[in-house]
Amino acid sequence: MINGVGFLIILGCVFGSYIMAGGKMEVILHALPHELMAIGGASIGAFIVGNSMHTVKMAGKGLGRAFKGGRWKKDDYSDLLTLLFHVLTTFKKGGATAIEPHLDRPEESNIFSRFPRILADHHLIEFICDYLRMMTVNFEDPHQMAEALENDIERHHHEELEPQHALQAMADGLPAIGIVAAVLGVIKTMGSIDQPVEILGGMIGGALVGTFLGVLLSYCVVGPLAAKLLGTIDGDSKPFTIAKTAIIAFAQGQPTQVAVEIARRMTPSESQPTFQQLESALEEAKNALTAQPA
């Protein structure tokens, strides 16, 4: 929604100011189809040539993510902290025997299934389950654990950023592609140098539409979408850092509730539950765990 409002403001102000200054839309509308074909076709073709098919597909999905925004809402962070409390408490009380069934089949676990939105993020669930499973086989050195977790997050984040980098590269190249389209228009104009001044003026104006479109698409469309996607990816990576913080604190021997509280401090400020809110959620979690059959 907010993206659509932004684009309407861009188009309204750019073309509105042009019309108010006495500009003739006929020149732009006449040149728009073939200039857009040259610029759009060249940029999309270069995008395909310069990236793997996987990155191209991910970029398409990334545009959708840029329009929809981040997946994680305020309640999801509270649910994640509660989930971490559940699994770490189960691990501490029952050891590997108690936690392994939940880690092997999280979709069937009565812990994970309580949080369907988190369970739907299979990358995060695999991340949590894999490292807790490693702790069941005595991989408990906090320093090694922290390094392994950080490297895993960095790798995943790097892969997630590939389509964003590709879109940003397209945005950076659009002004130059616009110049290519403009030069073609100038070549066309020079081939009709014997025409009246009125016709030549329209042809030169049409050629300059190429430069205009390249800059407009770069700085007002593709560039902002790439920046929005970067923010979305960064936001969606925060749960991995929260899970990492809780797991490391647990591996260092901190009480479960303290480990989760430390993780709470890593939650983005605008979505961070208060200490009291988290305490209430964890109290409910404790009661739910107590009520579970042995």
Rank of each mutant, 00 (worst) to 15 (best):
F7N: 04
C13R: 04
S17Y: 08
G23F: 01
G23A: 02
V27R: 08
H30T: 14
A31K: 06
H34C: 04
I39M: 00
I39T: 01
S43D: 02
A46R: 01
A46P: 00
I48S: 02
I48N: 02
G50N: 10
M53P: 00
T55K: 09
K57F: 13
K57T: 05
A59G: 07
F67D: 07
F67L: 13
G70F: 09
R71F: 03
R71V: 05
R71G: 05
R71H: 04
W72M: 15
W72R: 15
W72V: 14
K74S: 02
D76G: 03
S78V: 03
D79S: 08
L81A: 12
H86D: 15
H86L: 14
T89G: 12
T90F: 08
K92W: 03
K93A: 14
A98C: 12
I99P: 04
I99M: 13
L103P: 01
N110D: 11
N110A: 02
F115L: 11
L119I: 09
E126S: 08
Y131T: 10
M135I: 04
F139R: 15
Q144P: 03
A146M: 03
A146P: 00
A148E: 09
L149R: 07
E150P: 02
N151Q: 10
N151Y: 04
N151E: 04
N151H: 12
D152V: 01
E154S: 09
E160W: 07
E162N: 12
E162I: 08
Q164T: 10
H165C: 05
A166H: 05
A169Y: 07
M170E: 04
M170G: 06
P175H: 12
I177G: 04
I177M: 07
G178C: 08
V180Q: 07
V183H: 14
L184T: 08
G185V: 06
G185N: 13
K188M: 08
S192Y: 12
I204M: 14
G205S: 11
G205R: 08
G206K: 12
G206C: 09
A207D: 15
L208H: 04
V209H: 13
L213N: 06
V215H: 02
V215Q: 03
L216A: 06
V221F: 15
V221K: 12
V222D: 14
G223K: 11
G223R: 11
P224Q: 15
A226H: 13
I233N: 01
D234Y: 01
F240V: 09
I248G: 05
F250N: 14
F250S: 12
A251G: 06
T256W: 00
R264T: 11
R265Y: 02
P268Q: 15
P268S: 15
T274N: 03
T274Q: 06
F275C: 08
Q277V: 05
L278Y: 03
E279D: 12
S280Y: 07
A281C: 06
L282V: 03
E284F: 11
T290A: 14
Q292S: 09
Q292L: 15
P293E: 11
A294R: 14
